[in-house]
């Protein structure tokens, strides 16, 4: 047992020692994925990139998968596919419900589910073999047909913009214009504790805070989109570089059999990243909604905590 462990350790260290310079070399040779998606063809004025093709393909797959796993209407005694979907839906519900608040949960949950499943399956789809490697050479440049949808900033920015509008819609529906105004610009000081002059002066302070808050809210679009893009794009780069590294080994007689194994651990890493990032996107969106909508549940939440003995 120990011997094997030690062997694994030594192997990892050697692998890392060989890998790091080679990754550098691969990236010097321009083996990385281009930052922008490549246009494969265009319909009228609309350029269709490899990322869009992937996005459509995976969307079709998602819809077909859900349709076939449900086999029409859902049933009380769940078939296997339905049980799987239910466990995902139930798990997400348990996590999201206390964050969003009981009041907003009913109308927000479908949107959150859509985000979770869409991003999750797009990310996982990016790990399929052939993504980024099937394509044509034209003009001395390799043009892949498929690229993970979220490895294109257009897709993640679109997701983030839709999320922003969804956020605004849900917040207006739950808290109303007045509630949202109070949440952003409103004077949160307690009138009974301070003099009216200070209260009036604080109005301007909170107005300034509200302006900063507005920019911060707009920044959420950028932060959401770049987080998802960075993770997926970085992962895609990592996999490509590992693949390029393994192709460097192909000329060495014995080691070349090992070369196929080199990208493998990173696929596990990317699998994890795909799940976590879809979860993070959904959770952040629900936190943003909960910041505005979730006020009434606080006392209940505390009571619940005491009831479950969280503090023990």
């Amino acid at each position: 047992m120990f011997a094997r462990n030690n062997f694994a350790r030594v192997a990892l260290v050697v692998l890392a020692a060989v890998c790091i310079p080679c990754i550098a070399q691969c990236s010097e040779h321009g083996e990385g994925v281009s930052a922008a998606a490549t246009v494969v063809f265009s319909i009228g004025q609309f350029p269709i990139t490899d990322s869009v093709i992937m996005s459509w393909a995976i969307s079709l797959l998602i819809i077909l998968a859900v349709k076939f796993s449900l086999r029409g209407e859902a049933q009380i005694i769940p078939p296997r596919g339905q049980a799987m979907i239910e466990s995902l839906v139930g798990g997400l519900r348990d996590i999201v419900e206390p964050v969003v608040g009981r009041k907003a949960f009913g109308i927000v949950f479908p949107c959150l589910l859509g985000y979770f499943f869409f991003i999750l399956l797009q990310n996982l789809g990016g790990l399929l073999p052939g993504v980024g490697s099937i394509g044509i050479y034209s003009g001395g440049e390799f043009k892949p047909f498929f690229r993970p949808a979220n490895a294109d900033l257009n897709a993640t920015l679109a997701l983030a913009v839709v999320a922003f509008f969804a956020w605004a819609y849900y917040c207006l529906r739950c808290a109303g214009v007045r509630g949202m105004y109070f949440e952003i610009f409103g004077n949160k000081a307690d009138k009974s504790e301070i003099s009216s002059f200070v209260y009036g002066a604080l109005f301007f302070v909170f107005l300034g805070v509200g302006l900063i808050e507005c920019i911060s809210i707009l920044c959420r679009i950028i932060s959401l989109s770049f987080r998802l893009f960075g993770n997926t794009f970085g992962g895609e780069n990592l996999l490509h570089n590992m693949y390029g590294f393994s192709s460097l080994l192909k000329n060495i007689p014995v080691v070349n059999y090992l070369s196929y194994l080199i990208p493998l651990p990173f696929y596990f890493l990317e699998f994890l990243v795909a799940i976590i990032q879809s979860f993070v996107f959904t959770l952040l969106l629900s936190v943003y909604i909960g910041l505005v909508c979730n006020h009434g549940d606080h006392e209940k939440e505390i009571l619940k905590k005491e009831e479950y003995g969280y503090n023990s």
């Binding site: 348990d94 996590i95 964050v99 987080r227 960075g230 993070v280 959770l283 936190v287």
Partner: peptide, 20 residues
């Protein structure tokens, strides 16, 4: 469960700095 949610949020926010 609650800690997992909080920690993933914190990690996501810290991680964003790297992408910036």
């Amino acid at each position: 469960g609650k800690i997992l949610v909080q920690s993933i949020l914190g990690m996501a926010l810290a991680e964003a700095i790297a992408f910036y």
